[in-house]
């Protein structure tokens, strides 16, 4: 485990929160095994073995035979850092419970299915760098006005305007706080661009949000 992780006890990620991705997958989601589009936020955890930091090397994953996997991908999200105990809050008051903002990168195997919890794809050691720091909540007036970009080896690969999220930060905090009581330092990664960015061994990845910072990591295995 990484000693300097910014995460306290829980990192909740929201999948399928990109309106364009939901629209593109609507046909798929009306068929088996999904049968109908999601009615609630689609959530997954990055457990503690995944938590990592600014500047860290992200391990290249192995398959079950111990060989390097062929492909990995990265997504980046605004990380909402909970500032005080948050239990069953309304969307109107939700932002009062935010202590700050940071960046969460989610390295994984390519997302192929959303049907079962993606333990093999998402729970890889060191696959969730968080940072570079926590910016105080009052520095960000409207989280939905932010844009998340990903560059690989200096070339911009992904631009995601948070105005295109299906559910806002406040809505997500409210809904999640009705499932579980959130504690200070717990982080919600509120949304990723639907198109994850393919990465290779040795790639240098920058995830940036203006006003929040730039999170730099390097893929291992080179």
């Amino acid at each position: 485990m990484t000693a300097k992780t910014l995460v306290n006890s829980k990192l909740v990620c929201v999948a399928l929160n990109d309106k364009a991705q939901l629209a593109a997958l609507e046909g798929t989601f009306n068929e088996a095994p999904y049968k109908k589009p999601p009615t609630q936020p689609v959530l997954y955890y990055k457990p503690r073995n995944t938590w990592s930091t600014e500047g860290a090397v992200v391990e290249w994953a192995k398959d079950f035979d111990g060989n390097d996997v062929a492909e990995m991908a990265v997504g980046a999200s605004l990380g909402v850092v909970i500032g005080k105990e948050t239990c069953r809050v309304s969307a109107e008051e939700a932002l009062d419970y935010v202590g700050g903002y940071t960046i969460v990168a989610d390295y994984s195997l390519p997302e192929q299915s959303y049907y079962r919890p993606d333990i093999k794809g998402k729970c890889l050691d060191t696959s969730a760098p968080v940072g570079p720091e926590i910016v105080a909540a009052d520095k960000v007036a409207t989280p939905e006005a932010l844009t998340v970009t990903i560059s690989v080896n200096g070339e911009q690969k992904s631009v995601f305007e948070l105005a295109n999220m299906e559910r806002s930060v406040a809505e997500l905090i409210s809904i999640i706080s009705r499932i579980m009581t959130l504690q200070p330092g717990e982080i919600i990664a509120v949304g990723f661009a639907g198109d994850r960015v393919a990465v290779n061994k040795g790639d240098k990845v920058e995830a940036s949000i203006e006003g929040v910072g730039t999170l730099n990591n390097t893929l291992g295995g080179a």
């Binding site: 999948a15 999904y34 609630q40 959530l43 049907y115 079962r116 919890p117 499932i179 579980m180 009581t181």
Partner: peptide
């Protein structure tokens, strides 16, 4: 009642306080 076919069993079914 809260089961949905996304990361099933989803957190709303299993991760409540």
């Amino acid at each position: 009642d809260y089961l949905e076919n996304y990361y099933r069993p989803n957190l709303r079914v299993k991760s409540r306080d």
